[in-house]
Design a protein around this nucleic acid. Structure first.
Length: 439
RNA sequence: GCCCUGGUGGUGUAGGGGCUAUCAUGUGGGCCUGUCGAGCCCGCGACUCGGGUUCAAAUCCCGGCCAGGGCGCCA
């Protein structure tokens, strides 16, 4: 039986074709990047996943049919080219291919909706409308190769540290957790919502005896925000561990972030180079700044902030300018944190909650959780929520819930830090924001 | 959601009551044997939508939609 490509198979990626292969026969497959027809000689640049190679067709050396085929090329068409590698000082990277056989696999229509060679820069909106073309640019695909390595390292890190990977439902029954707006959906005859966070599920898992769990998954928030750092669908990296507290989990988070940066420097140096970004390996431990200290810093910078308030954008910027890099904000006021956060024994107005910041960007929130049933019910009531709506969650606290702590990291925001982009949409293949639902 | 700014060929732009609507890139055709942002010649292609003002609107006014920036919201 023969497949669509018959016997035609790629022998090499363009990146691996070096002058040392001179004289060898190769088959490459990819996209027509540029065509320069000089009449008696035609140059074509063919691009594949991470490189470019020049195809050189001099009329005296190649079959006239080959030249005829090449003249039918249009930019971004998909082609297969069989030919001989030739070392040449005049070719880019000192190497080119003299074609012997050409297969047009798919002709691209013209004009293109945007220019992947970036002679004319497109705006992000135009780029997202044609994201598949946008991703053909090395500087854009590099962001996602770095993001992929980030997830790879994070999974390795969790597995090496004894965490079990879990998946919790994204279709949830109620909006009772409070806080953010949820997307309502129709679930047969019932009303349901898209999950805003795996928080309650990963806590229930602490009562399962699995000890340490993590989840990497989508979260949905129906807020009408319109900023460079918010999306309505995001990826959250969530971790929860029993018999650990906020201090332990800050250390886990610190170690994980550091390992991600080490690995990306080591394994994604080409991609970092392509996007022109450097991420120095941070010194640890990351500094810890208490909320009390943060209020003083913010006020000393001329930004008004009362104790008990959440950070305004101006406050975040003041802190970022003063502290900078990765740092933890600790001992948040209990009142502005969720019901499941453990208050300080010495001063219940403050809590065992922390945020991880990078400059002025919040990357993560975490805390020691309340594991005592009665205290949890009290804190739910204090926030004017109905404990009755938390039945299946609260149940797991009645029959042996261990002390535990955890955090959630915004994966797309972490990617922003790793790649140095200033718009979170750059870090998501197909972002969902206030206005965009396609592609 | 609020404030500010904007929306002109496929893309990125100039212009700002009466113009044949600028330029680049692209695209179609032609010339050219070492291009590499190739070059040269010829052609193609646009004023966000709906109202209003005016003899006349791409241009001014109002509204919608969309975008950029800032803020808010974001347990």
């Amino acid at each position: 039986m023969q497949g669509l490509l018959n016997s035609l198979r790629r022998t090499d990626y363009t990146k691996n074709i070096t002058p040392e292969l001179s004289g060898e026969d190769v088959i490459i497959m990819g996209w027509v990047h540029e065509i320069r027809d000089l009449g008696g000689i035609v140059f074509v640049l063919v691009r594949d996943k991470d490189g470019l190679i020049q195809i050189t067709a001099p009329s005296k050396k190649v079959d006239p049919e080959i030249l005829e085929e090449i003249r039918k090329f249009r930019k971004e068409s998909v082609v297969a080219i069989e030919g001989t590698v030739q070392k040449s000082d005049k070719a880019p990277n000192g190497v080119e291919i003299i074609p012997r056989k050409i297969e047009m696999l798919n002709l691209a229509q013209q004009p293109l909706p945007m220019d992947p060679t970036e002679k004319v820069r497109a705006e992000i909106d135009t780029r997202l409308d044609s994201r598949f073309l946008d991703l053909r640019k090395a500087n854009i695909s590099s962001i996602f190769k770095i993001k992929s390595q980030m997830f790879h390292t994070i999974r390795d890190f969790f597995y090496e540290n004894g965490f079990v990977e879990i998946n919790t439902p994204k279709l949830v029954a109620s909006a009772t957790e409070g806080g953010t707006e949820l997307f309502p959906i129709t679930y047969f005859e019932k009303e349901a919502f898209l999950g805003q966070s795996p928080q309650l599920y990963k806590q229930i898992m602490m009562s399962s005896g699995m000890d340490k769990v993590f989840e990497i998954g989508q979260i949905f928030r129906a807020e009408e925000h319109d900023t460079l750092r918010h999306l309505n669908e995001a990826i959250s990296i969530d971790a929860e561990a029993s018999f650990m507290d906020d201090v332990d989990m800050m250390e886990v988070l610190n170690n994980m972030i550091k390992q991600v940066i080490i690995d990306i420097n080591e394994k994604c140096s080409d991609e970092l180079n392509t996007i022109g970004h450097e991420i120095p390996i941070p010194e640890d431990p990351f500094p810890k700044v208490t909320y009390d200290e943060a209020v003083d810093i913010v006020n000393s910078k001329g930004v008004e902030m009362e104790w008990g308030e959440d950070l305004s954008r101006a406050a975040e910027k003041a802190l970022g300018d003063t502290v900078g890099g990765f740092y933890f904000l600790t001992e948040w006021p209990s009142a502005i944190k969720p019901f499941y956060v453990m208050p300080l024994e010495s001063d219940p107005k403050k809590s065992h909650a922390f945020d991880l910041m990078y400059d002025n960007l919040e990357l993560s929130s975490g805390a020691t959780r309340v594991h005592q049933y009665d205290l949890l019910v009290t804190q739910i009531e204090e926030r004017d929520l109905n404990p009755g709506a938390f039945g299946s969650y609260l149940k797991s606290f009645k029959y042996g819930m261990p002390p535990h702590a955890g955090w959630g990291v915004g994966a797309d925001r972490l990617t922003m830090v790793l790649t140095g982009v200033n718009n979170i949409r750059e870090t998501v293949l197909f972002p969902r924001d206030r206005h965009r639902l396609t592609p």
